[in-house]
Design a protein around this nucleic acid. Structure first.
Lengths: 191, 191, 191, 191
DNA sequence: AATGAATGAGCATTCATTCAT
DNA sequence: GATGAATGAATGCTCATTCAT
């Protein structure tokens, strides 16, 4: 009888390798063979798990976009201020734990190869974000204005912060706190 | 009688075509032949003006990064609040007038091919931004905190806004005003 | 039942094709695609076996230069006269059996692409030849003079002979004998 | 009225440049543009003087092959021994004065592009050589055997010598003398 | 299931040749 | 006559994808 085993799930190994290579070289600039090599497998095996480079790209995109959305999904009825603080931290944690994933998702352009499902997922994420803003507006905590616009601003700020850190900017816990407060000021209803 | 001339400056035509193709397909995903075709020229001609794809990429990058920095360069001794409003508008205008250029510069990852000069130019831009923040902090208009961090946040917010607009978000003049006010709140010293 | 196998050793097939094409068109004038076609393979396959045209050129050069040197290597303590006769015949045989190889090696100029190893091999061959001449001089069989010079003369004569045969000159066994005697006269100590 | 002038004859300048480039890089490996640049002219000008790369190659070949044949042409009724000594020296001088030309003519393979005229010229040269050998045989000075074979041997020896010198072999006047004596031994009738 | 050799279209780049100025 | 910009086919090389083992 065989042990339940603990083999590294091939698909996941491939996706990790793909993420690394895509992040370094861009989806367009990455070679499938390089992904396979990085995963310690043959190209043939890669193609047993993913029918094409495009499919691989989408799988990676969806996996991490999904991971990200899962993190920040839980809502509840907390005040927007509290929820925002939590989300800010969660995304920052995500970017710390999976910096390549965040870079791949947010610092690159994916237009050329994303399939319908990937696009739908992205839209679901935005919708959730806008929903959060709208709710905060309804409770008077968040300033008036197109929720999509406000979301674009704060999320942009967050992405900018993470990009700067990836570029070498060192920030202590206090400063991270400060960044969150500043970002909230962007959102907060004027006194 | 004819005006002294109006020749299409070949180099510029090529760089425009390159910008369009790079923006659509990413530097890594773009084919040099496609750039030449889009410019209405042969590949050979492209290579008479640029020694390599890399050189072309850097030329495009530097041209537009330079353009952008030129726009927002003028400083003066105005209050930070005024200066910020002007800059916000200027970058927005730039992105309206040259949307591909902005997308190419700010929505993509360039790490793989940028040369020293391109990198230096990018750094000069950041330095100018940080200088602006630092000055505002000295006058008490801008909140305390690492200037690089604050710059990353606001510039990220601006990029996020422009990305959202490129993605289809429609905003009127009033809302653009509002976005600027919100962004300033991020920067402004807490009263 | 089948013999253990007889697969065409891909590398060797490629090198044979390369030799043929290089001999016909010169290394510089040969197209890699033509080599692949002649070998009945795709370009991609060629590049799986040789990292570059240069590497292919060097591999072909070294294979045949090595073959040639192997042929004429064995020395022994025979009189120079005997040894010379044998070598003359061996090189002639080599040129008969592998006329393209000899032409490639000796009728062309390789300066541009030969790597260190190829150059070293060539030098080893010359050194062996000079050693033969020097030994013959020590025994008084071969005339005085710079061994390198004498080697250049006889080997040149041999190459000239083979080139003429390749150009259409027909020689019977007796005449080949005569050529050897004449060449030896060049070398022989004056009575 | 115009001065007889002394402009550098464009055609000759081009042919000199071509010789240099062909010698360095082989006809097949040489770029027409490089020839033009080396000649200090534009490609357009080159093409005004030579209708194609092939034509240029043949012109260069014929010019120098012609030069060489001219040198060694004069016959007279001298003894073969004397004539041989003179020719040996003349070719050596030619190779000293125009080393690139000799290398181009004799160290390379030209099969691919030589036209009928070039081939005819080469044949005329051989014929003259064979005639010299035949005459020497008639006077009993040169050993018996196919004149083409004997010519191939001595001329090969001479080419070998010059190639070795080009490769770095240094020879004094005495050794050059010795080389000539050795080469004559190859030809000389066995007493 | 896994491998990696094989394929050939595609890519960046070069080159012989033409032609408007 | 001279120039060199322009052309596009050809070159060396890479890459996504397939398939026999």
């Amino acid at each position: 009888m065989q042990e339940p085993t603990e083999r590294p799930p091939t698909r996941a190994v491939l996706m990790d390798a793909a993420l690394a290579v895509f992040t370094e070289q861009t989806y367009g600039g990455a070679a499938v063979a390089e992904v396979a090599k990085r995963a310690g497998m043959s190209v043939g095996t890669l193609y047993r798990y993913f029918p094409s480079k495009e499919a691989l790209g989408n799988a990676v995109f969806q996996r991490w976009k999904g991971m990200l959305v899962e993190r920040i999904a839980g809502s509840g009825d907390e005040p927007a201020r509290v929820m925002f603080a939590r989300m800010w931290r969660l995304v920052l944690d995500f970017a710390d734990e999976a910096p390549d994933a965040f870079a791949f998702l947010e610092f690159q352009q994916h237009e050329g190869y994303l399939d319908a499902e990937s696009v739908a997922l992205s839209e679901r994420v935005s919708a959730a974000g806008e929903e959060f803003v709208a709710r905060g507006q309804r409770t008077g905590e968040i300033r008036a204005g197109d929720p999509a616009m406000l979301l674009a601003l704060v999320y942009g700020a967050l992405v900018g912060l993470i990009k700067a850190r990836r570029g070498g900017l060192k920030l202590g816990a206090a400063e991270l706190e400060a960044s969150e407060r500043a970002a909230w000021a962007l959102l907060a209803a004027e006194n």
